[in-house]
Design a protein around this nucleic acid. Structure first.
Lengths: 207, 207
DNA sequence: GCCAGCATAGACCGACCAGTCTAGCGGGGT
DNA sequence: ACCCCGCTAGACTGGTCGGTCTATGCTGGC
């Protein structure tokens, strides 16, 4: 979710607290995130990540002693941080949840088309690949979803919705958005994103 | 979507037109489907499929000269056929769309728990892994989604909904269900499935 | 009984995988 | 001036990958 805001945010400058980290580490995470979210964890070899980021293998294992899984964990963590930051930014700018959903829909559709349907949801693809496994990577995905859900729920509560309902609505929003992304990518058609957004908006409107 | 009905249907007997195919071919598709939908296409090696299905490599390449991709295509095609058959069965038994969604929710939740969150959506995981690629495998996923969507839309039209709206609703249903599956698996919690179903039901009720 | 074919069986192959290891660079501290 | 060490650099390795190939059942038609 919200992976697209990595591009503007991470590339533009010192936001996200990503710029204070080592440039090589940063570059590895950026390239790996893009590749993983396009084709999944297992389809991407280290060779491709290293070639695209122009990094030797030694550097990767210096910054990520745990190897590929640790790199993927860092990618998931950064997606989570970026998503939270984006939610905070928008919720702090006076937007209401309906406005957020509309805007999310627009930006998502534009992102999908701009990347020619190559980019997808990192959390979704890695979560699906890891399945019900209990490794640290699937745990990272679980936590990422949970943090995003809680942040959305908090926003909904600030709009006067009861806590239990807010959490349910937040989970529904995430599920529907992720599903829309899956279907839109497969169809090469952004329509599912706007359709799901319409449904989510009326859910929020009805309370 | 609707992958779970493979188990009861394919195992119980001569439904789905699957029993008239060669038993080895059938067994390969069943085992490969289960493995792919648990961990994705790239994470599963032929060795594992062959070991679990007790099939030698020669048989695989006899029945699927195209190798792994062709086997995966057959898995996707079977999921599509099973889903269509299930939809037809339920729509023919006097159930309305709301009843279908409720029932789908119950069966999906039970399936997720029964398989200890290991099983997922074959279409979603393969679709995500293939991404925006234009290979025959991602084309198979696209067609599978499209066929299911058209069948659902037909059902909705039979309930008096206009054609354009019916197609939109069908796409929304599929997107939301797939997303719920993704999130539920990651959280090891079936709640997203029922939450999304509630939302879909009110969408259908409102027309 | 015998042949023809489909299907099984698994040894084998080159490519590629993630990961290890040693060597060397370069700049800040003293 | 020197050294130390965070970091870069890439050759190398054992294992696994998908795929090919030859050999061998097995079975229905004659």
């Amino acid at each position: 979710m919200l992976a697209f805001l990595l591009d503007p945010a991470a590339q533009s400058g010192p936001a996200d607290g990503a710029s204070d980290m080592h440039p090589t580490r940063n570059r590895l995470i950026s390239v790996a995130t893009r590749l993983f979210q396009q084709r999944g964890y297992h389809a991407i070899g280290l060779a491709e990540i290293l070639a695209l980021s122009e990094t030797p293998k030694g550097s990767l294992y210096h910054h990520f002693p745990g190897g590929k899984p640790e790199l993927a964990e860092a990618c998931v963590a950064r997606i989570a941080e970026s998503s939270l930051a984006a939610i905070d930014r928008l919720s702090g700018s006076g937007l209401d949840m309906i406005g957020f959903l509309r805007r999310l829909s627009e930006v998502t559709a534009a992102w999908l088309q701009r990347t020619d349907w190559l980019d997808g949801s990192l959390l979704a693809v890695i979560g699906q690949e890891q399945g019900g496994a209990n490794g640290p990577l699937s745990e990272a995905v679980r936590i990422a979803y949970q943090r995003i859900e809680m942040r959305l729920a908090r926003w909904l509560m600030a709009e006067g919705i009861a806590v239990a309902r807010a959490r349910d609505m937040a989970a529904t929003i995430i599920a529907a958005q992720e599903g829309a992304l899956v279907l839109a990518r497969s169809r090469h058609d952004a329509a599912p994103v706007t359709l799901v957004t319409d449904m989510l908006c009326s859910m929020v409107e009805r309370g």
